[in-house]
Design a binder for these strands. Structure first.
Lengths: 408, 408
DNA sequence: TCTATTAAGTCAATTGTCTTGACTTATTTC
DNA sequence: GAAATAAGTCAAGACAATTGACTTAATAGA
């Protein structure tokens, strides 16, 4: 029917989908609980002992899990716990951040094994791609020195860069991020590295990092506010990063804040709450490689400009947090970003007390707001964690026949 | 391991999960495309013809799908299209809305077959439950008159009432909604009706209605703003209603709007954008059963109070829509609610032009904002649609062994 | 110290579901 | 009228989880 319109339908599944899901569930359970016996896994996943045994045997021969010494605990045969093998998989993360690009190599458990950094030449992607490919090659080489088995065990290359994507960007953007967005980056890097390449915005990457090895580890509903050069949020909903219809979900920096007084105009939140805005106030050059150190110095000794910025940013963040809580009803909100830890602490202090919200409910067992990574490398780590997550985390689309199944 | 802490893990799946998913996918495809042949279904779902044939045969013998006359279209054997059988399943929806309660009976395709309404007696749930059970019984009786087969084909009872849930509510709430929330409603109604009972807030129910039979039909990423006595949003993310950690996602009425001038305090959005706030301004009694008619009359003839409220509400809604677009990057935003259509039109006009946002992207093919149901019955329809959706729509949790699988 | 109990884990057969490839049927095109 | 095309069926096969009995190895209790 409907020759004209394509038929809209979700994909079906089969035994392969079942098996792939169950393998992912095992890995996820080991990631969350550290180590579990086959019997533990059977109970936790509602599968039978036999099924778990078969899957674990497979995963072991694939080099993804390994057994530990048997433990005696009470009556019955001692159990043999299993753990993830860090060297079971590797991924590369690439951050493209205006004037600088960073690479990170991580293993299956998200541990950072190698990193690299380079300045991006002026002139946009045509020139920058060479630098990037060199940097990736160098990082892979470094990684091969530490973990020779990595050569055959890459699951992908994750890229993080500032969003939003697919929007006609400001012409006056000095960093030519618009040019980067229009450049066929995925195709070029896929061809240049032979890896499976995906793109996410930097806030999403930061959230991926928090989920894999940070404050959101084990949480299924968490909102990560990422305060870097810009402002964004990574949305972890039902255990997965939410991307929206066009991959631009979480662009809270583009929210227009209400005019605060008559005559004031609505302005994007990012204009008040970002390292870019702070740099502007401090008269610093955002291209300065030592920017973070400079900000750290200035923020350390009391500085009226910093205090005013913090107050203003905190005012907006209070509202943003209250808004996000009202909309998402998350388990927690995590503030992270590429900023000096001292500045992050000032912000956290200024944000408290939080505005009242539905987050103040009876069942709360976790702080409403937590501080996540403030390391400038967190985005690159998240970029690297994305292929690991995509390949090994249980998710709906991994079950479907046409879903991007990954390789588990 | 970890005797103290329960093991955290997702559930595994098996052949049953596979089969259940594939059945749901078939039903979903027929719902979206109206009618499809087995071959169409095989192509659309990536399953084999044989598998589709087996599943369709089963669904047909279960009375959920039926064949239509064969159609010749080009070379090859004519195809036999299948469609959903409306009488294949039925559900009851119950709306509890302060002074009034409504019931709706729908079939598999979401068509309304019976409805009922009653005033809720003062005195809260202890007294109200009797009224409700009577009303449900009456609706089931009416339905049995139209569709005798409904007796054996109920998939559940969906309840919608104002949220948020689990929050210590205002003591000065004149409608005793807090008492309703503390009352063991699900248990009582489950025992009283023998049906599977679920609860959602009214905005979520409105979104469920839009998804099943309204403006969000076939959309996977849509935000429904529900403007009724209160204000809320129903979030359709990846084709499913998002509930948040505690079932309170979408409570945008609780967002504290920024002070608009020095000296003004932050106030919940709901205080400006709701029928409650309009009633207050107009000096109307919200308990008046004729409230909507009265508002319609007043809004019809130019009225300065209405104009001022519309302007104010539209100002806030502009910001709310821009915020939601920035956060979710949805395909569209739908404004719906329990208000006179004339008022809805005034609001829609006043909201335009929309504030700029990432929704203005290159690939846009749908209006950023659409008007959905303004029928006061929409929430009850959505409540009734929820069990249908839960039972027949493809979703992750339906695949899992311990997921609430429903009965497909 | 011996025995019963408990729990982990394996073995072999079974079941349920999708897949495969050949086949039948019905229609249009040339 | 023959060839091409597409829908749909048949029967055997493949795959993955399940079942129930069994083995192994520990502790608890008499």
């Amino acid at each position: 029917m409907n020759e004209m319109h394509p038929i809209r339908a979700k994909s079906g599944t089969n035994q392969e989908g079942t098996s792939a899901h169950n393998r992912r569930v095992m890995i996820d359970a080991l990631r969350l609980n550290g180590q579990l016996s086959r019997a533990d896994l059977a109970r936790a996943t509602a599968l039978t002992k036999q099924t778990v045994s078969n899957i674990i045997e497979e995963l072991e021969s694939d080099g993804l899990v390994a057994s530990l010494a048997a433990v005696r605990k009470g009556r019955g045969q001692p159990s043999t716990p299993y753990r993830l093998v860090p060297e079971g998989a590797f991924a590369i993360g690439l951050q493209i951040d205006r004037h600088v690009t960073r690479t990170i190599a991580v293993d299956l458990i998200g541990a950072v094994l190698a990193r690299g950094e380079a300045n991006l030449p002026a002139g946009g992607p045509e020139k920058g791609v060479g630098t990037i490919l060199d940097l990736i090659a160098r990082t892979r080489h470094d990684l091969a020195g530490i973990a020779p088995q990595s050569r055959d065990r890459f699951v992908g290359l994750g890229i993080a860069m500032p969003g939003p994507f697919g929007i006609d960007a400001d012409a006056d953007d000095p960093w030519m991020m618009a040019a980067w967005q229009n450049f066929p980056l995925l195709e070029t890097l896929s061809a240049g590295t032979g890896l499976d390449v995906r793109l996410q915005n930097d806030a999403a990457a930061a959230a991926t990092a928090e989920k894999m090895v940070g404050a959101a580890h084990g949480l299924d509903q968490a909102i990560c506010i990422y305060l870097g050069y810009g402002l964004g949020a990574g949305l972890i909903l039902n255990g997965e990063l939410y991307r929206g219809a066009n991959g631009n979900a979480g662009e809270i920096g583009m929210i227009l804040s209400q005019p605060r007084a008559a005559g004031m105009k609505r302005a994007p939140l990012e204009h008040r709450v970002s390292i870019a805005s702070l740099s502007k106030i401090l008269g610093l050059d955002p291209a300065d490689p030592g920017l973070y150190r400079r900000i750290d110095e200035i923020a350390g000794g009391p500085d009226a400009r910093v205090t005013a910025w913090v107050e203003d940013a905190a005012f907006e963040l209070q509202a943003a947090i209250q808004t996000l809580e009202s909309i998402f009803d998350p388990q927690t909100v995590i503030l992270c970003g590429g900023m000096p830890p001292g500045l992050a602490r000032l912000l956290m202090e200024a944000i408290h007390p939080l505005l009242p919200s539905i987050a103040e409910h009876r069942a709360r067992s976790m702080p409403r707001l937590q501080l996540g990574f403030t390391d400038p490398w967190a985005v690159a780590i998240g970029a690297a964690a994305e292929p690991i997550s995509r390949t090994f985390d249980p998710r709906f689309s991994a079950i479907l026949k046409t879903g991007t199944a990954g390789a588990v």
